[in-house]
């Protein structure tokens, strides 16, 4: 393949962040402007006290120029994250469901728009805890019976970002296991792309 090796395994976290910036978010503009037509749609009008819906990348760009205040999504509040964390801890078997771009959006908002969030530092540590609990579960999952038999890993509710970290290792490991599986019949086709894909 023509792609450099580090891009062959799938999307990188940076690329996922780029995709996440397509999500829309509410902002309170600090300037007045009529509607603007962008490739992805028409946004505005921007009239200061009322909120407008724009893509995240636009919100971040305006925020960096101090031209808006970002209204954090409702799932990014101390309460909601605390609930998720509690649910995650209580439920040892599976992952709790998070918005698809949860990690990416929360990270860029904490990076760029810290002052628009309530208690950013405790939010940050809650997110870190949440991540660690989920990572621990992934680790246990990797040593579970399903993986050991080379057949499957339970990844329901994992976000694409977490999967991107896990995938290269898992694909290669399962490729090796599949090739070591005792042959049933003389069908050479059973070796699917697994091993090749990881190379």
């Amino acid at each position: 393949m023509a792609l450099p090796k580090h891009l062959q395994n799938g999307l990188t976290p940076d690329e996922l962040t780029f995709l996440a910036e397509e999500e829309t978010i509410d902002i309170v503009p600090l300037f007045s402007m009529t509607r603007v037509r962008l490739l992805s749609g028409i946004y505005g009008p921007f009239t200061p006290p009322s909120a407008a819906k724009v893509p995240l990348w636009l919100a971040l760009s305006l925020k960096r120029k101090r031209k808006c205040r970002i209204v954090p999504p409702e799932w990014l509040s101390i309460d909601r994250v605390q609930n998720s964390l509690k649910e995650e801890r209580e439920n040892a078997e599976s992952f709790c469901s998070l918005p698809r771009r949860f990690i990416e959006i929360s990270k860029v908002l904490l990076d760029v728009a810290q002052d628009d969030l309530m208690q950013p530092s405790s939010l940050r540590s809650l997110l870190k805890d949440l991540r660690e609990v989920r990572q621990a579960k992934i680790r246990i999952g990797l040593q579970s019976e399903g993986v050991m038999r080379g057949s499957y890993l339970q990844v329901t509710n994992l976000t694409p970002l977490e999967l991107s970290e896990l995938k290269p290792f898992l694909v290669k490991a399962m490729g090796i296991m599949q090739s070591l599986e005792p042959r049933k019949e003389e069908d050479e086709d059973e070796e699917e792309g697994g091993g090749n894909y990881a190379q």
Binding site: H6, P13, D14, K107, S164, E165, P168, F169, A198
Partner: peptide
């Protein structure tokens, strides 16, 4: 396999 696991872990860590 070790190198692959280490690499993807590193990429995520540097992103975080």
């Amino acid at each position: 396999l070790f190198a692959i696991g280490q690499e993807s872990g590193k990429v995520s860590k540097s992103w975080y």
